[in-house]
Design a binder for these strands. Structure first.
Length: 270
DNA sequence: GTCCATGTTCTTTA
DNA sequence: CTAAAGAACATGGA
């Protein structure tokens, strides 16, 4: 569910309230969503202040005032919300951070499928060695280099977080449509002009989605519980058989790498 | 009961 | 090593 625009929106709605606040208590209702297994999250967090909340790829990275870091990944159905203590504790709420202060606000992590979780990173250098470059600041030459490394379908390559960090099924389909590139094109066969268009398309698509606070198809909500609005502006995702907004040709849905893939057969030629 | 789902990782197979 | 395909994880909605 949550891809870069959704994660960025959560960070943007969480940061103003969370930064500078101390953690008064931590409830871990399900220890198996916390990694590495057995880490003392309560001991690491209680009494510390939150110095920063940021995004890296699809991760929501918290930095503490002692340099300690942990991140939340929302998986498919995860939510990270700010709640008043009186708010009903909903089913599948796994971790609750109690913030110090007169309002006793809480940051709650809730995830029915539990593909997401909380990862304690520690105080060492940022451990994101497996993540590729950030798409919003990606130079075209870097994208070209990343794509040249593989002959997989460009759609599959862009879903690989080691190639570019933050894109998921929605925004890969949307970006390829905007760039006029067929999703099955082998990544290394995308011509230089196509890489330039793709680089622009990815940035434009993501910025526009962030402006509309992400896409809510089912579960996604920001830290205040509000849904996004970008799903109403999708060009191809979840629009199989509907007319392409550009040319009217029915959008095609195929399965690629086990993921549904949407494209316009007229605007995106092989 | 069936199929599908915005993500990631592992196994199998080539 | 590459990479494709499939399964696995766990839950809920249609």
């Amino acid at each position: 569910m949550p891809e870069l625009p959704e994660v960025q929106t959560v960070v943007d709605t969480l940061r103003p309230t969370a930064v500078g606040r101390s953690v008064a208590a931590v409830d871990v209702w399900r220890a198996d969503v916390v990694e590495p297994a057995g880490v003392d999250l309560v001991g690491r967090l209680v009494g510390r202040a939150i110095a920063d909340v940021a995004r890296r790829g699809k991760r929501i990275v918290f930095t503490l005032d002692d340099g300690g870091r942990f991140y939340v990944h929302l998986g498919m159905t995860g939510r990270l919300t700010l709640d008043h203590p009186a708010a009903l504790l909903l089913r599948h709420t796994h971790v609750v951070l109690h913030l110090a202060g007169t309002d006793d606000l809480q940051i709650r992590f809730r995830d029915s499928r539990r593909f997401g979780g909380v990862w304690w990173v520690g105080t060492g250098p940022a451990e994101d060695g497996r993540l590729g470059p950030e798409p919003l600041t990606l130079p075209p030459a870097t994208l070209a280099r990343q794509l040249a490394r593989t002959g997989r379908a460009v759609k599959t390559a862009l879903l690989d977080q080691r190639v570019v960090a933050g894109l998921g099924n929605i925004y890969v389909d949307e970006s390829l449509h905007r760039a006029g590139i067929h999703p099955l094109t082998p990544a290394r066969d995308v011509p230089p002009a196509g890489v330039l268009r793709l680089n622009r398309a990815i940035k434009q698509t993501l910025r526009r989605a962030i402006r509309h606070r992400g896409s809510t198809l089912r579960d996604y909500a920001d830290a205040h519980g509000n849904a996004g609005g970008f799903q109403l502006l999708h060009a191809v995702y979840d629009r199989a058989d509907a007319p392409c907004h550009t040319c009217g040709t029915p959008i095609v849905r195929v399965v690629l790498g086990g993921r549904s893939t949407h494209f316009c057969p007229n605007c995106q030629r092989e």
